[in-house]
């Protein structure tokens, strides 16, 4: 099994390198090389996740979200690069490369799977949570591009897109919370367990994006102001949602 574990780390390291290379390639004239390398990176990332699942299924090891989040972000980057909105594709690639690097150098996935994770709810929760957070990241980046004027060619479409991404993100994130509550009730006897401080930041994030979805009802909150609000969600996602899932600095096995 150690071999699979090692290969899973190698595959993720490879994915992180590919994301970085792909980001660099987005500045070349031809657009397909970046897309191809991004695709290869995503394949390596998914292979790494598959190996991790293979060595723990039907259970799940804690602190896997950074690896799933990066895969979801890369998937979104691939969806936007190079045709639909190249600037957002590049921004998403930047976020993917950054978060992948943090996941490589600050891992916290060394804990063994625990018996209460032996339920499909644990896996569904992880997918919804990573998908929701990745979509909210995309919404925040799209809002930033809208503010920068990076979408000048189609301002209205950009405005619609950053709102729609937040709506999708909020829906997925809400589904992840409900799945977690169902799991928590079956496994720990209550939908809410006061053990992990990150429970408060999860709720704060939900209320923040709930607030974003209500802004259009307020006078004076035009698209630009709403975009600033959406942008403020990125530090929240990074500091309060992503960083608690990471550990202390350590050289990856293949570098030490």
């Amino acid at each position: 099994m150690e071999v699979f574990q090692l290969w899973s780390h190698h595959a993720f390291g490879l994915a992180a390198l590919a994301y970085l290379a792909s980001l660099g390639l987005t500045w070349t004239t031809a657009r397909w090389p970046a897309g191809l390398v991004l695709f290869l990176g995503l394949t390596a990332n998914l292979a790494s996740l598959g190996l991790k699942l293979y060595i723990s299924w039907p259970m799940q090891a804690p602190h896997q979200e950074p690896f799933w989040l990066v895969a979801c972000l890369a998937g979104l980057a691939l969806a936007y690069w190079p045709r639909r909105w190249p600037a957002l594709g590049r921004a998403l690639l930047g976020a993917t490369a950054l978060l992948a690097a943090v996941a490589v150098f600050f891992p916290k996935d060394y804990y063994l799977p625990f018996p209460r994770s032996n339920t499909i709810l644990a896996h569904v929760y992880l997918v919804f949570s990573a998908g929701g957070r990745a979509t909210l990241w995309a919404g925040g980046l799209a809002a930033g591009l809208f503010l920068l004027g990076g979408a000048r060619e189609d301002e209205k479409a950009a405005r619609t897109r950053f709102t729609d991404l937040h709506i999708w993100g909020f829906v997925l994130y809400s589904l992840s919370l409900f799945t977690a509550e169902a799991w928590s009730y079956l496994g720990w006897s209550s939908p809410v367990i006061w053990e992990e401080p990150t429970m408060t930041t999860t709720m704060a994030t939900w209320f923040f994006y709930g607030c974003f979805l209500h802004l259009y009802l307020l006078r004076g909150w035009d698209a630009r102001r709403r975009a600033w609000f959406a942008l403020a969600g990125l530090p929240l996602l990074f500091y309060f949602n992503y960083l608690p899932e990471t550990g202390q600095f350590s050289w990856p096995g293949w570098m030490s």
């Binding site: 401080p197 930041t201 709720m203 704060a204 209320f207 607030c211 209500h214 307020l218």
Partner: peptide
């Protein structure tokens, strides 16, 4: 709706401090 806005932001700030 402006009360909703203030209450939601209040909850965000409070929960982050609570963290």
């Amino acid at each position: 709706p402006s009360l909703t806005f203030h209450l939601l932001l209040g909850l965000v700030a409070d929960l982050l401090a609570g963290y």
